[in-house]
């Protein structure tokens, strides 16, 4: 799936909500086979950036390409390429996990293979036992796993995960790390926003800090330098991690 174009190429990206600017000319480029851990204080623009990349929010300025597709004109195509996990699960509480996954698979045009795709995505995240349980009856951790399964269902080359660690138990976190590692080996890319320094630096090969709607710091990630990174973070944002 990986093309010659970078996974993400954003230049001067701007987004206003009402009259409040959230992204102020953000530049970011992400190649294939790379996982970027994105850190930043609340309100710095992390979630807005991910929502813009996911095509949920239209940017108000700048240029944004996903795998070379200009997202302003080709949002429908770009949506095929991304898998998204946000704070909300995007699952229907009163449908079972299987029904939810089959529904989203059908929306992605996987009609004939919907059930099979749903089962394989669920299997990879340890959801086999709860496939026929309503989402409402699951623990938060299980719901989060189901949301992850929903995001990878159509095998998108680009994953956007907004603080996926919230609500995930140890096992699920391990499953997520394995999933990300496999994804990267297969040439896929991901952006993961997080508050956990050690964890973020472990799963990523690149770490960036977003502050006031711009990328303030961007460098290869090194899991052994967590304290250094904390110091850098404080320098750039005036906040602590």
């Amino acid at each position: 799936m990986a093309s010659t174009h970078p996974a993400i190429s954003a230049a001067g990206l701007a987004k206003r909500f009402g009259n409040r600017p959230v992204l102020r000319g953000l530049d970011l480029e992400l190649g294939w086979g790379s996982v970027l851990a994105l850190f930043g204080p609340n309100g710095a623009g992390k979630t807005t950036l991910l929502r813009t990349l996911a095509g949920l929010t239209r940017h108000s300025g700048g240029a944004l390409r996903i795998a070379g597709l200009d997202i302003a004109g080709r949002r429908a195509d770009a949506r095929h390429l991304v898998g998204v996990v946000m704070h909300q699960t995007f699952l229907y509480d009163d449908l079972t996990v299987a029904e939810n996954l089959r529904f989203y698979a059908r929306m992605h045009g996987l009609g004939a293979t919907a059930a099979e795709r749903a089962a394989s995505a669920a299997g990879a995240l340890g959801l086999d036992a709860v496939m026929n349980a309503r989402v409402r009856t699951l623990s938060n951790g299980m719901q989060k796993r189901a949301a992850l399964a929903r995001a990878v269902l159509h095998r998108p080359p680009l994953l956007l995960l907004d603080e996926p660690e919230t609500g995930l138990d140890q096992d699920a976190m391990l499953a997520l790390e394995q999933l990300l590692a496999r994804h990267r080996e297969a040439g896929g890319s991901a952006i993961v926003t997080t508050h956990g320094v050690e964890q973020g630096l472990r799963i990523a090969d690149r770490a960036a800090i977003i502050h006031n709607g711009r990328i303030a710091y961007d460098a290869p990630a090194d899991a052994s330098d967590a304290d250094d990174f904390r110091r850098l973070y404080a320098e750039h944002t005036g906040a602590s991690l």
Binding site: A54, L56, R79, T89, F90, L91, D93, Y104, M107, H108
Partner: peptide
């Protein structure tokens, strides 16, 4: 549960 956004991601 943000279902509308789930639909919009399709």
């Amino acid at each position: 549960r943000g279902g509308m956004e789930g639909l919009l991601l399709s």
